[in-house]
């Protein structure tokens, strides 16, 4: 398949692009699932029984991975927007590193928040 070439990077820059595509696709699929799931709000009992399954320690790691996808997609997205508006191309490597560091920090914080509450 030719689309596999999207995921064969030659540098860190297009590795970031590959992940942006991948996380974007995952998040879009999750959006559909999410809306379908929330449709059960019309029936409180079904909703409560489903939420009992998904909001549980077993599901937390998955949830945390999803949040990682979201954080990466958002922060990397900001980086891409800066470049797409024509700025900071000369500093693209530094920007990429900053973006990666911020992603990890935000993800650790978000995961901590999630574990605190459950």
């Amino acid at each position: 398949m030719r689309i596999m070439k999207w995921f064969k990077p030659v540098s860190l820059q297009d590795l970031a692009f590959a992940f942006q595509r991948l996380t974007g696709f995952i998040l879009a699929m999750y959006l559909i699932l999410h809306l379908a799931f929330l449709s059960t709000l019309s029936d409180p009992l079904t909703y409560e029984s489903l939420i009992a399954i998904t909001v549980s320690p077993t599901f937390l790691p998955l949830d945390s991975l999803l949040v990682l996808c979201g954080i990466y997609h958002g922060l990397n997205g900001i980086r891409v927007i800066i470049h797409e508006l024509g700025y900071l191309h000369e500093h693209r490597k530094a920007l990429l590193v900053i973006c990666a560091i911020l992603t990890v920090i935000a993800w650790l914080y978000a995961t901590w928040v999630m574990y605190e509450v459950v």
Binding site: L41, E48, I51, V55, V67, G70, V113, V117
Partner: peptide, 14 residues
């Protein structure tokens, strides 16, 4: 959205 649903306990109860 993330903070409202994760910062408070039982934020996702019906």
């Amino acid at each position: 959205h993330f903070l409202t649903t994760h910062m408070v306990e039982h934020a996702l109860s019906f």
